Simulated scan of single mutants.
Amino acid sequence: MRIGLLTGGGDCPGLNAVIRAVVRKGIDRYGHAIVGFRDGWRGPLENAYQELTIESTRGILPRGGTILGSSRTNPLKDEGGAARIEENMRTLHLDGLIAIGGEDTLGVASRLYDGGLPVMGVPKTIDNDIGATDMTFGFDTAVQVATDAIDRLHTTAESHHRILVVEVMGRHAGWIALHAGLAGGADVILIPERPFDIDEVCRLLRRRHSRGRYFSIVVVAEG
């Protein structure tokens, strides 16, 4: 079989590890040929690709980013985009396509699958906001980095008697804010899933101040 592979959306830790795993397992275990599309959905849309081999993916495991490049191209916004992808897959004699991405990338994959194309998705997003999976790769590293930042800010906030607001990623989901805020000892955590009253937040911070704690850390998800 010939299998296509692409990475879409924002980059995150683990993309090259998934590419390497697909190539090694596909070639070593099943004897498949793997075709890597460049720059997300732009690759199959414009037929920009490269053959992936064990040799070409050697040494990429510890590297950040993605060797295939990425973009936020949405082929469904182009007239005839889905048909062009189908035609290019046929030209390359592909039996299937693996899309590695988050909400937007996998949304396109789902639509193409519903249209009859053999497409499957690998959930990638630091926001951890993809359904049907407990944890997406990239999320754990994002939490570690955010927790480290929050932890380092405690002494600065305390030294200057400040209230520091830390904004983290999380467009529709507050997983990073929740996990990193708890791990980093934040005093207030604000997430999209839980509506909040800013006056109540201020009251909580003033109460903390009245108890002799003259600094606070507030973690806010971007959504």
Rank of each mutant, 00 (worst) to 15 (best):
V122T: 06
E86V: 06
F196A: 03
P62K: 08
V35H: 02
H32S: 03
T91G: 01
H172G: 02
S216M: 01
R63G: 00
G212E: 06
D95W: 00
S71D: 06
T141H: 07
A109S: 15
T125M: 02
D39I: 00
G223F: 07
I100P: 00
G223E: 02
T57A: 04
G36L: 05
V218I: 13
F196W: 13
G36Q: 09
F215A: 12
T156Q: 10
T156I: 08
G14F: 07
W175H: 15
K124F: 01
G10C: 10
G64H: 15
H172T: 12
L112R: 12
L204K: 14
D127E: 04
D140V: 13
V166G: 03
D104S: 14
L182H: 10
N128W: 09
L94D: 01
R24D: 03
N47M: 12
R42T: 07
I60S: 09
G107M: 09
G9K: 13
G131K: 14
N16C: 03
R20Y: 13
A183I: 10
A83L: 15
V35N: 00
K25Y: 10
V143G: 07
T91L: 10
A83P: 11
M169Q: 11
V122L: 05
Q144S: 13
S159Q: 04
E55D: 15
A132W: 04
Y49Q: 03
V119W: 03
G170I: 03
G9Y: 15
A149P: 02
V18G: 06
M89Q: 04
G185P: 12
V23I: 12
L205M: 02
G121P: 03
R63K: 15
T66G: 03
G131V: 11
V220H: 09
M135T: 15
T125W: 02
E200T: 14
R203Q: 14
G14S: 04
E200I: 11
I27T: 04
Q144M: 08
P195S: 11
M120E: 12
A157C: 14
R90V: 00
G4V: 07
I189H: 03
P123C: 04
S56I: 07
G96N: 08
I191L: 05
I198E: 02
N88E: 04
H154S: 03
D78Y: 15
G174D: 08
Y113W: 09
T73A: 04
P75D: 05
F137W: 05
T147E: 08
D197L: 06
G59Q: 07
G181V: 11
E193I: 11
L45R: 08
K25R: 15
R171V: 02
C12D: 02
R203A: 14
G80K: 09
E51F: 06
G64Q: 14
H179G: 00
I100T: 01
C202F: 06
I217C: 07
K77M: 05
L68N: 09
I198K: 00
T147C: 09
V18S: 09
I217M: 14
G64M: 13
G131H: 14
G107L: 06
G131Y: 09
W175R: 01
F196H: 12
G26Q: 05
R58M: 09
V219D: 03
H209C: 05
R42W: 07
W175L: 00
L204Y: 08
Y113V: 04
R29H: 12
A132V: 10
M120G: 13
I150V: 13
D129E: 07
